[in-house]
Write a protein that binds this DNA or RNA. Structure first.
Lengths: 222, 222
DNA sequence: GGCGCCCGACTTGTATGGTAGTGTATGCAC
DNA sequence: GTGCATACACTACCATACAAGTCGGGCGCC
């Protein structure tokens, strides 16, 4: 369980649960009990209920009235569609980033690339994914499309969960940093097609890795 | 107030409020009282509260803790970003629709085009927008991207609200039907670029109309 | 007369009890 | 032993009560 100290109790519980689900600390198919989670977080059932509603909106959990709430299983079909949506948005962001880009965000991206390479070398999955998210967020921010990143986050949760299975070691993480650098290279060259192509290639990584992990962990899929 | 009879009380209230907000029955900046809405719907505050949380997730309302909840004003910056996201997703859907398309959805689209033309001729705004939504939904559905349509809907609410101001008469609606037909023509010709270009042109309509309505109704904007 | 403090009427946030519905287990009839 | 009915435990959902914070008005003081 991860402690979050800001916001309302409902927001804290939701953030905590979201992280646990994405990190696969609670596996797909697990039954979630309002009572138990409320007790564990030291709050009443009501905030937990609101957290469930929030999570069900992005389909991370499935609330079945009068029956119970379970962590959603990983759906390959949903995963592919989520990837499609993310690719559509982020390639468009990459193109727009080539038209005009905020210099402050540009400098921040260099820092984030370094941070990510360091986390990858250290084998720190969680830190790597955090830096990855910050990179994509900074890209959207710099291109003036902050809302686009919000939209991506809604579908990204499912992809991240799958990525937990596909990033077993540092060897799998380092190439992703290079892919990020390729995107930035396209951006610096003001070459929309190159940036978009690099982004598309980057976001296709999951497609290549998916069949293997699906065969390896069939009980996590539906 | 619109009556919805399916789902939980919270869902009914949320759907009712969402429609009222998008239809501009309640204007941007209006204060929403949990108590009053609860009384009007004959429910307690709790379902209303959950409805507010749902609406705040797509930024249709702004919940300020211990202070009150107001209907969000129309933000031009947010509107432009929402349009950007929608264009990114739906042009990608249009391209994919040219690769393979479900025949059942294809037939349904013809019906929806006729329906929409009829509603436009009758000057029925609400019916026109309903048919418009169903058209785009059927397009995504037929292309196998139902999730993409869900993602679009999140940003679409803001665009629809602005469209309430830009569709004053039937003359403004009829060209939109033609734009739909152009998209379908590209689809039938299996020409991804034509379909995407038609979609892009269609979704750019709002950009052309925005400056005028912003000048006309400045109090609705922030 | 103007400024500042305090109190009260609001707001949203949280806790708790009760209700209706579902799935399961148990016991009975066959 | 098998099939069915009934009772029970558990769930989400909703209503109500309470807590905590915010804003505004009125009063006192300077």
């Amino acid at each position: 369980m991860i402690e979050v100290t800001t916001g309302s109790a409902a927001e804290r519980v939701e953030a905590s649960l979201r992280r646990s689900i994405i990190a696969l600390d609670v596996l797909p198919g697990t039954r979630l009990s309002e009572q138990e989670i409320a007790a564990r977080h030291g709050v009443s059932r009501q905030p937990v209920r609101e957290a469930f509603i929030g999570l069900s909106r992005t389909r991370l959990v499935e609330v079945r009235p009068q029956r119970g709430t379970v962590v959603a299983k990983i759906s390959v079909a949903r995963l592919m569609q989520a990837r499609f949506v993310r690719e559509a948005i982020e390639t468009a962001v990459a193109r727009r980033a080539c038209e005009a880009f905020d210099p402050t965000s540009r400098r921040r991206i260099d820092d984030l690339l370094d941070l990510q390479a360091e986390r990858a070398a250290a084998g720190d999955h969680a830190g790597f994914q955090r830096a990855d998210s910050l990179f994509h967020a900074a890209l959207a921010e710099g291109a003036g499309c902050a809302l686009a990143w919000e939209a991506v986050q809604d579908v990204k949760a499912h992809l991240d969960r799958a990525c937990q299975l596909t990033l077993p070691d540092a060897a799998a993480m380092l190439p992703l940093v290079d892919q990020h650098r390729a995107i930035v290279a396209g951006l610096d060259a003001r070459d929309p097609e190159a940036a978009a192509a690099a982004m598309r290639h980057h976001l296709s990584e999951i497609v290549r890795a998916l069949p293997k992990v699906e065969a390896q962990y069939p009980h996590l899929f539906e």
